[in-house]
């Protein structure tokens, strides 16, 4: 493979990592509080607000049931509004964030719901405010699950980021489609797939390791 092509791969990998890193961070920023709220706002729970819970749940479901490629196209006007353009890696961050936020929210909800309700009651009986319960009990206790959830989200985002390539988002997916498919360069296609596999493996391994590190539950048995 020529140095130019290798440069292209390196550049595309950088774009993909940039898109994934920014959208995963933003998705976590929005998704974590939404997930915590979803996990704590049913009837009788910490922030009991059943109506808000139901509405938010429906919005999350609606977003998650829209195929990503359709979401990307459907929100182009919004993307233009936010990013000033609908083309390129920067613009792709908008749909990636919008897709990852409800995904992360549901994962966070699941992880938080795993925390023993007895611990919430314990902290409450010590006079903890709901916010203290979230910060001192729910999030630290759910941390191993949260780390694995975010790992899953990042892996999914790597796949999504390849998809935005189809609509001019740049990155590895873009490279694979334009060079590997349209110019019929199987070597390039293979290289893109290999890089993606390596990235996913690395992310998953790092996530598993981190989750084990923060898990104090079984480690010492």
């Amino acid at each position: 493979m020529s140095p130019e092509l290798i440069n292209l791969i390196i550049q595309a990998t950088g774009e993909s990592l940039f898109m994934v890193a920014v959208s995963a961070s933003l998705g976590t920023l929005f998704g974590l509080p939404i997930g915590v709220f979803l996990a704590t706002s049913r009837k009788g729970e910490l922030f009991a607000a059943p109506a808000a819970n139901a509405i938010l749940g429906m919005i999350v479901n609606a977003t998650r049931s829209t195929p990503f490629i359709i979401l990307v196209v459907a929100i182009i006007p919004f993307t233009r509004l936010v990013a000033g353009t609908s083309i390129g890696s920067g613009a792709a961050i908008v749909p990636l964030t919008i897709a990852s936020t409800p995904f992360i929210a549901r994962l966070v909800e699941g992880a938080i719901r795993e925390v023993d309700a007895g611990l919430i009651e314990t902290a409450s009986s010590f006079g903890a405010t709901p916010l203290q319960v979230v910060l001192k009990v729910l999030i630290p206790e759910a941390l191993p699950g949260l780390v694995l959830s975010l790992t899953l989200a990042v892996v999914s985002l790597l796949g999504y980021s390849a998809m935005v390539g189809a609509v001019g988002g740049g990155g590895l997916g873009d490279l694979g489609i334009r060079y590997g498919y349209q110019r019929f360069m199987p070597g390039m296609m293979l290289a893109v797939v290999v890089v993606l596999i390596v990235l996913v493996q690395t992310v998953q391994t790092a996530g598993d390791y981190l989750a084990r590190r923060v898990n104090r539950r079984l480690r010492h048995r």
Binding site: D116, G118, L119, E121, T122, S125, F126, V137, P140, E141, L143, V214, R216, R217
Partner: peptide, 12 residues
């Protein structure tokens, strides 16, 4: 308050 299942935080 003390509890049957102790209710300690596993992360602490």
């Amino acid at each position: 308050m003390i509890f049957q299942h102790f209710n300690l935080l596993s992360s602490r």
